[in-house]
Amino acid sequence: MGRQAHRPTIKDVAALAGVSTAAVSKAVNRSGRISEETRRRVLAAADELGWSPSSAASALKNARTRTVALIVRRETDVLGSDPHFTELIDGVESELAPRGYGLLLHLTGAAGTGETEAYRRFAQEGRVDGFLLTESRIGDPRFALLRELGKPAVLLGKAACTDPVEQVVLPEPHAGVTGTVEHLVRLGHRRIAYVSGPDDRVHSAFRAAAFHEALAAAGLTAEVFPGDFTEHGAVRATEQLLARTPRPTAAVYANDSMAVCGMSTAQRLGVRVPQDLSVIGYDDLPLSRWVHPRLTTVDQCVKDAGASAARRLLQLCGEELPDRPLARAPRLVVRESTATAPPPD
């Protein structure tokens, strides 16, 4: 009995056309970003070999998974100790779960090793319908990548570039920062320190810029201490700012977790909060109401923001949902961790 002729495969088409198998898939499915010249070359190779994609495989690949992905550049221990993400995911799930969607959470580590590969793998294997993005970075490579992959994507927050994926931005995003500075100035503070997040995060840079602008409007300047959104960063920054002469009378932290670590560090060093040092956080997470003294902080509606981003992504994935107003602008919540500035040293 004669040997059966070899049936052409996608790898054969890719080899003949001089492209990757991913490019062949994009060409025949008309998905993702690919040049017309490459598409014509692929289709000509497929025609020459008599190859066509399996209709069953194509249907499976293009089927709705009812799953969206959130890929986060965080270590597992840091993510677990950051209540911000718990609130965010709570908001996301409030929109996904009632509609039968699941959330695929993938951590790449702080260095982002394998981040690009994860986006490509989830998209090309048809594992998710779309992507949620957080913490846009300066020079963020994810936007061009997601346009290439052709999957719906929504960024929660503001991007630095002019052509990102769709964004969900809270109204007046810097209202909380301005309110923070105005509150401290009214209390008589003139030496105000700022403990920032990572320099490469867009929202961190925008928030620091808003802080400087608000201080400049009050005729003041501030010294910025890098905190990196981590507990260790907050401890290090607090020790540094308390070592200054004269010492700041107030410290504003870029998130609540750092603010709580800052208060603990100050008290360990014999600095009373708020008598000697007023402290303000950012996020208004549940822990801010349970520490002593209770934390003055900015409520930026983390849960509502997560819900808004998830809802918009569901719309892009084809769900017919009515629009809802975005969460309100961030606002300062005054508690006991701020007080009138102490007399000058």
Rank of each mutant, 00 (worst) to 15 (best):
A15D: 15
A15L: 15
G18P: 09
A22N: 06
A23Y: 01
K26Y: 12
V28P: 06
N29D: 10
S31L: 07
S35N: 03
L49R: 08
S52N: 10
S54C: 04
S58L: 12
N62S: 15
V72S: 02
T76P: 14
I89G: 01
D90E: 15
V92N: 08
E93P: 00
E93N: 15
S94A: 15
P98H: 07
L107E: 00
G109K: 04
A111W: 06
T113C: 04
T116I: 03
A123N: 06
F131E: 03
E135A: 10
E135S: 11
I138G: 02
L146T: 05
D163K: 04
A175C: 07
V177Y: 02
R186Q: 13
L187I: 13
V195A: 07
A210F: 14
A218Y: 00
V224S: 04
V224I: 15
D228H: 13
T230V: 08
V235S: 00
R236T: 13
L241D: 12
L241K: 06
L241R: 09
A251I: 01
V252H: 04
A254C: 04
N255R: 05
D256H: 07
V260A: 07
T265V: 09
A266N: 07
R268F: 09
L269K: 06
L269W: 05
G270L: 06
R272D: 14
G281S: 05
L285S: 05
R289F: 06
V291I: 15
P293W: 08
T296Q: 06
C301H: 15
G306C: 10
R312F: 02
L314E: 04
L314Q: 06
E319I: 12
D323T: 11
R335C: 08
T338D: 00
A339L: 09
A339E: 12
T340Q: 13
